[in-house]
C-alpha cells in the first residue's frame, strides 16, 4: 500500500515513476489504487484486480478480446491507460451474472453454442451486452456491426449472432 490513496491501494512500480491515484467502480465494487502511469487498463484489471476473464488477443485494439464496458460504452481495454479510468464505472465479464445466476445473454450463448475455445467469449459478451443496452431490438445487420470488432476464429459467428438475437427477444419479453 502506498498510503497516499486510501486503503485498497495497490502499488505497482514498473517504471520508477511516481504512481498515480485512481478511483473507479468495477463490477459494482469501489476500487482505489495507485498505478504506474504506463499500465494499461487491461493489465490493471488482470494483474492488479485479478479479474482474468478479460483477455488480451492482440494488444492493439484490433481483435476485441479485451472489450469491457466503461461508462456504458464498449472499449478496448488494451489501448487505454489505467489512469484514464479514474472516475469511471467499469463492467467486465465477471459482472454479468447476478446473484449466482447467469444473465439471459450468457444463457443464450451456451444454448446456441456461441462459443468454442472461449477465449473471445468475454469480449464478445461485453459487445453484445452494450448493444442490447442501447438497442433492445437490433437487426441482424446491427448485431454484425456491433460484433465485428470482436474476432472469433472458432465459431464462424453465426451461432453468436443467433444467441444475441434470441437473448434480445427474451430480454424484451421479460420487460413486458
Amino acid at each position: 500500500m502506498c498510503g497516499e490513496h486510501g486503503n485498497n491501494c495497490f502499488v505497482h512500480v514498473d517504471s520508477g515513476l511516481p504512481p498515480v491515484g485512481l478511483k473507479c467502480v468495477v463490477n459494482g465494487e469501489e476500487i482505489q489504487a495507485c498505478v504506474d502511469p504506463t499500465m494499461t487498463l487491461l493489465n490493471f484489471l488482470r494483474n492488479e484486480l485479478k479479474l482474468f476473464g478479460t483477455k488480451e488477443g492482440c494488444g492493439e485494439g484490433e481483435c476485441g478480446a479485451c472489450t469491457i464496458i466503461m461508462n456504458g460504452e464498449t472499449v478496448n481495454s488494451c489501448i487505454i491507460l489505467a489512469v484514464e479510468a479514474d472516475g469511471a464505472e467499469i463492467l467486465t465479464v465477471e459482472g454479468l451474472a447476478k446473484d449466482g445466476e447467469l444473465s439471459i445473454l450468457q444463457q443464450e450463448f451456451i444454448k446456441m453454442d456461441a462459443l468454442q475455445c472461449g477465449f473471445c467469449t468475454p469480449g464478445m459478451l461485453m459487445s453484445a451486452r452494450a448493444l442490447l443496452d442501447r438497442n433492445p431490438n437490433p437487426s441482424e445487420e446491427e448485431i454484425k456491426e456491433a460484433l465485428a470488432g470482436n474476432f472469433c476464429r472458432c465459431t464462424g459467428y453465426i451461432p453468436i449472432i443467433d444467441a444475441v438475437k434470441s437473448a434480445a427477444k427474451r430480454e424484451r419479453e421479460e420487460l413486458k
Binding site: 465479464v93 450468457q106 451456451i110 462459443l115
Partner: peptide, 13 residues
Amino acid sequence: LRKEGQEKVTGQA
C-alpha cells in the same frame, strides 16, 4: 450443450 459453457461465459475458465 457443451460441458464447459458456463465456465467460459462467466470468465472463470
